[in-house]
């Protein structure tokens, strides 16, 4: 019940946004995420943006995965 993908908002017209997902573009509704801003990354599920993606956290996660040996069992 959870198929969702991250995408970047490249256009916003009131409650309708255009998102870019690795080059693929789609219109999604912002009815559930009205505060979403142009340029933000959001999680998209069945044509709706449902959550903002924290880019800082993305960076941290990627760093963590790359440097796992350092973070080994604290």
């Amino acid at each position: 019940m959870c198929l969702a993908v991250p995408g970047k908002i490249i256009d916003k017209q009131d409650m309708l946004a255009t998102v870019d997902i690795s080059g693929v573009q789609r219109k999604v509704s912002l009815m559930l995420l009205p505060e979403a801003k142009l340029g933000e990354f959001v999680l998209i599920h069945a044509g709706f943006a449902v959550q903002t993606i924290d880019e800082e956290e993305v960076k941290k996660t990627m760093e963590l995965f790359k440097e796992l040996e350092q973070y080994a069992d604290k």
């Binding site: 198929l3 993908v5 997902i21 690795s22 080059g23 693929v24 789609r26 998209i44």
Partner: peptide, 12 residues
């Protein structure tokens, strides 16, 4: 390609 993978991810 990234785009094809993205489209697949969107639609399942």
């Amino acid at each position: 390609s990234l785009a094809v993978q993205a489209a697949c991810d969107i639609l399942g």
